[in-house]
């Protein structure tokens, strides 16, 4: 089909381009500003005189001899042990993604292939579970976990995050599985595969795009979580986000604000890379639920 180029009046083009530019500025500027500022000292980034100090950094030059300093990063990563919370975050996110996808692909496949009425009810139940605020669930866990003596450990937080993740994962993978023709696994079963073999060897290989997209969102949920990790992990097991929150409690000491700024930038950097490489998958994941559901 040939799409005819519609001509727009010039003022409208100018207006809409300005609007988009303004939005991009609003979306990107806070990040650029904070990344730049994280290499300054506190008296520059939070200057009482003028915010222009944060750009030129006169106090940074006076204190460290150079316009850029890695003191904030050194303080956060080495002095305040941000490094160990990075390791914890890696353990938590990788485990959550792997377990969620294993559970989710099995469940989503079953929901997409069964024609009975109860699949509808399970999906509705998952929708209600999806709407539960995480902190209300946390208030249900705390006392039992204390009593069972499993509070504070990484595996506890991992399995909780997997469970909280399940409703969304099920919905998303269910809609991806629906787009794969039933004939595919049925013909495999005619050829002598069991149901599980058909799932494992025939359906999953064509499902990779859907699995990767869902995995990205599981990753984001585990990575961005604050309510669960802040309440369920003990001090030495903290992941990045609660660690940053704990920096805030002790920022009276000079220089500590810059530790928090550096930690914030360190925690954002992987997300930048993620969006850069997986932009297409993220967009398709956001729209998959909308367009099909």
């Amino acid at each position: 089909m040939i799409v005819k180029k519609r001509r727009r009046p010039l003022p409208l083009t100018v207006l809409s381009t300005t609007f988009v530019l303004l939005w991009v500025l609003m979306a990107a500027f806070p990040f650029i500003w904070t990344v730049w500022g994280s290499f300054k000292v506190e008296q520059d980034f939070f200057s009482r005189d003028s915010w222009w100090f944060a750009i030129e950094g006169p106090r940074t030059i006076a204190q460290t001899g150079s316009a850029f300093t890695g003191d904030g990063y050194y303080g956060a990563w080495v002095l305040r042990d941000f490094f160990s919370s990075v390791v914890n975050t890696i353990i938590v996110t990788v485990s959550v993604v792997v377990i969620s996808l294993t559970f989710g692909t099995l469940g989503g496949y079953a929901l997409a292939r069964s024609g009975y009425r109860y699949t509808f009810w399970l999906l509705m139940l998952a929708l209600v579970f999806r709407a539960m605020p995480h902190i209300t669930l946390v208030s249900g866990y705390l006392l039992p976990f204390f009593e069972m003596n499993i509070w504070g450990h990484l595996p506890t937080a991992i399995i909780v995050l997997v469970a909280i993740n399940q409703p969304f994962t099920l919905w998303m993978l269910h809609s991806f599985f629906l787009s794969i023709p039933k004939d595919l696994d049925e013909s495999a079963m005619v050829d002598g595969c069991s149901r599980f073999q058909a799932f494992r060897m025939v359906v999953i290989p064509v499902m990779w795009p859907g699995v990767i997209t869902t995995g990205l969102f599981s990753f984001l949920l585990a990575y961005n979580d604050f309510a669960v990790t802040a309440m369920l992990l003990s001090q030495p097991n903290q992941t990045m986000v609660p660690k940053i929150a704990s920096f805030l409690g002790t920022i009276q000491q000079e220089g500590n604000v810059m530790f928090a700024v550096a930690a914030v930038v360190s925690a954002t950097a992987p997300l930048f890379v993620l969006v850069m490489f997986f932009q297409r998958q993220i967009v398709s994941g956001l729209t998959a639920g909308a367009v099909k559901g």
């Binding site: 979306a27 990040f31 961005n224 925690a267 997300l271 932009q279």
Partner: peptide, 11 residues
């Protein structure tokens, strides 16, 4: 445009 949504809410 994706950045404000993807970034950790607390951050």
């Amino acid at each position: 445009s994706l950045l404000p949504m993807i970034v950790t809410p607390l951050v």
